[in-house]
Computed example of a mutant assay.
Amino acid sequence: MDPIPLILAIIGVVLLVLILWAIVTYNGFVKLRNKVEEAWRQIDVELHRRHDLIPNLVETVKGYAAHEKGVFDDVTRARAEAVKSGSSPAQQAEQENVLSSALARLFAVAEAYPELRANQNFQQLQAELTNTEDRIAAGRRYYNANVREMNTKRETFPPSIIASMFNFGRAEYFETEDPAVRASPYVNFSADRDRFDAE
């Protein structure tokens, strides 16, 4: 019996398996890249909504605290930088962190004006902005999960071979430096314990 046809058949099967694996792996990378891009577009929509709310918020606060020009200028400048398109997720995150810091100063100014805090327009804008911030945070979590999945697959062997052959690069995370987001929650049970002991 001639072993050459058997060897050729085995080589053919191995090549077929390798080709199928390469196709499946490549398609998996394409799917992950598209999920990352889709998740980024969702964040981008919410960021635009946030940017659109800010001028109305600034104008409302100006009506009560016109002498706080420096704060208004900081918010306006930070918004202008954040609105610029073409930024990578890391650059966009940095710009959004600057904007969040400027908005925090704007809300600190608003705290000094009880009439402003009671203003219906201000309350509505503040609620819309808070709602938008929550959606951005949810979008950031979804986006970063997809980025992690893409980068992990890209760096593991053997899929890394396909990633390097077809130039599937690392995706960037969208991270926040907002202390309110990064801070650990503070829990204090002493008041409850004192109340429990008193009972």
Score class of each variant (00 low, 15 high):
8 L>N: 10
115 E>C: 07
118 A>P: 03
159 P>M: 03
91 Q>M: 07
46 E>N: 14
91 Q>N: 10
159 P>R: 04
111 E>V: 03
101 S>E: 12
23 I>S: 09
60 T>Y: 06
45 V>A: 09
165 M>W: 05
18 L>D: 06
126 Q>F: 00
57 L>R: 03
62 K>L: 14
53 L>V: 08
134 D>Y: 10
106 L>S: 05
122 F>M: 03
140 R>H: 02
19 I>M: 15
73 D>Q: 12
76 T>K: 09
136 I>T: 07
74 D>C: 03
113 Y>A: 07
171 A>C: 10
167 N>E: 07
168 F>S: 00
83 V>Q: 10
150 M>C: 00
130 T>H: 12
87 S>D: 11
73 D>H: 05
154 R>P: 00
93 A>W: 07
72 F>S: 06
127 A>F: 09
20 L>V: 14
29 F>I: 10
198 A>C: 00
178 D>M: 05
55 P>D: 13
116 L>I: 08
20 L>F: 13
32 L>R: 08
62 K>W: 07
46 E>P: 05
28 G>L: 04
126 Q>R: 00
133 E>Y: 09
138 A>C: 01
158 P>L: 14
151 N>L: 01
135 R>D: 13
79 R>N: 11
68 E>M: 06
80 A>P: 02
61 V>S: 00
181 V>F: 01
61 V>I: 12
63 G>H: 12
22 A>L: 10
37 E>W: 02
152 T>V: 08
187 V>Q: 07
170 R>K: 10
106 L>W: 09
193 R>W: 03
22 A>W: 13
189 F>Y: 09
190 S>P: 00
83 V>R: 09
160 S>V: 03
33 R>I: 04
66 A>E: 15
134 D>I: 03
39 A>T: 12
58 V>L: 12
14 V>C: 12
151 N>V: 12
175 E>L: 05
176 T>W: 08
172 E>R: 02
98 V>R: 10
110 A>H: 01
187 V>Y: 11
188 N>W: 05
147 V>H: 04
83 V>F: 10
38 E>P: 05
84 K>S: 13
185 P>H: 07
146 N>C: 04
58 V>C: 03
27 N>S: 10
22 A>C: 12
156 T>K: 09
80 A>M: 08
51 H>F: 13
103 L>Q: 05
74 D>F: 08
55 P>W: 07
179 P>T: 02
148 R>G: 01
148 R>S: 11
94 E>N: 14
169 G>C: 00
193 R>A: 13
26 Y>N: 15
10 I>T: 08
56 N>I: 15
63 G>I: 15
132 T>Y: 04
84 K>Q: 13
101 S>W: 09
73 D>P: 00
21 W>F: 15
39 A>G: 15
57 L>M: 13
192 D>P: 00
139 G>K: 01
36 V>I: 11
33 R>E: 15
25 T>S: 14
144 N>D: 08
145 A>W: 02
